[in-house]
């Protein structure tokens, strides 16, 4: 009986969550639509202009084809209807369905950003924790200077410098691209090839986030180290490593997870610069081009997908909170 009630409660929670999700997506879609249209510029005019000799008839035809001749509210209605059926529309500029365009680019961006995210999180928190535990020592100073340096370095400059050193001077790594074009490789060789191409873009993208997490983790560790429960643990005679892993790290990670969750979405935005420098065939570059060309369907499609990713990441952050801090689980306090 109790099991059935709890299953019903979970079901209800899931339905509430799903309804909220749809509502949030619709609000985001509407906001995106308004935002995109608020920018001056007309895609038909850009396209017609590029052909070098347009006339009003061509412009009119293009507007009709784009659906731009419809009243604003009708266009918004069509957009929301499409969003609900997960139809992202058709890019008239690229002459292909938007979903296809996004799905072609999404894996490369996810590979780049998720790897950079994991690297930044792992190395950043480790360095930060080490610096925090040895606060005031030479190691701490060294890590602090290093993280400040990484934080202050412009992403594109770091990328170009890495290329100059590791590609031009030493010839160790490929300068750009996702993989060696036209190479006949076995699947294993291809994985290594992509990995080799990933090193510099991932390091460039991770650098600034790595610095942020390191700084955050350092101060968080220092703060936690002075809490009463750590003193209690020490008084109980617990071994140093056990205190660090079992008590300090777990508590110190909370602010890091909060910031990391917030920044995961921004990471995709930051990838635009890296994708440009390293000719990485990802979503960032597609977004940038779509903005320039006012390719509305592509822009709205990308924004929608990114919104969903951010919502999912927020959910994941919530779940991680519960894992590292049981107090946050409803009813557990």
């Amino acid at each position: 009986m109790r099991g059935a009630r709890s299953a019903a409660a979970i079901g209800l929670a899931a339905i509430t969550w799903a309804v909220r999700l749809v509502a949030v997506i619709l609000v985001i879609a509407t906001f995106n639509f308004i935002l995109v249209r608020a920018a001056p510029g007309d895609p038909a005019q850009v396209m017609a202009g590029q052909s070098g000799a347009a006339d009003p008839k061509i412009l009119e035809d293009l507007r009709k084809e784009y659906g731009l001749d419809q009243p604003y509210l009708v266009q918004l209605g069509t957009h929301l209807k499409r969003v609900l059926s997960f139809d992202l529309g058709y890019s008239y500029r690229q002459r292909r369905p938007v979903l296809d365009l996004i799905m072609e680019r999404l894996p490369a961006t996810l590979l780049l950003t998720l790897t950079a995210f994991c690297l930044a999180l792992l190395v950043g928190t480790t360095l930060g924790a080490l610096a925090g535990l040895a606060a005031g020592s030479v190691v701490d100073t060294l890590f602090t200077v290093l993280s400040l340096l990484l934080y202050a370095t412009p992403v594109f400059w770091l990328g170009l410098m890495l290329v100059l050193v590791f590609s031009v001077t030493l010839g160790w790594l490929p300068a750009f691209g996702y993989e060696t074009i036209n190479a006949k490789l076995t699947p294993i060789e291809r994985v290594f090839d992509i990995g080799k191409h990933m090193i510099m873009p991932v390091v460039s993208l991770a650098a600034i986030y790595l610095a942020i997490y390191a700084r955050l983790m350092r101060s968080s560790i220092i703060e936690v180290a002075h809490q009463d429960f750590i003193k209690t643990a020490r008084a109980k005679g617990l071994a140093g490593p056990r205190i660090v892993v079992g008590h300090m790290l777990r508590n110190a990670l909370v602010p890091v997870v909060t910031v990391a969750g917030m920044q995961a979405g921004a990471l995709v935005g930051g990838a635009v610069v890296i994708e440009t420098v390293f000719a990485w065939p990802g979503l960032g570059r597609l977004t940038f081009d779509a903005v320039l060309q006012r390719d509305y369907p592509v822009l709205l499609g990308i924004f929608l997908i990114l919104s969903i990713i951010v919502i999912v990441l927020n959910l994941a952050t919530d779940l991680v909170y519960r894992l590292i801090d049981p107090r946050m689980t409803t009813g557990a306090a």
Binding site: L160, I181, V277, A279, R285
Partner: peptide
Amino acid sequence: IYRVIPDAASRAL
């Protein structure tokens, strides 16, 4: 093979 290289410095390289 036409490579897409968006950044001018990377193209020069």
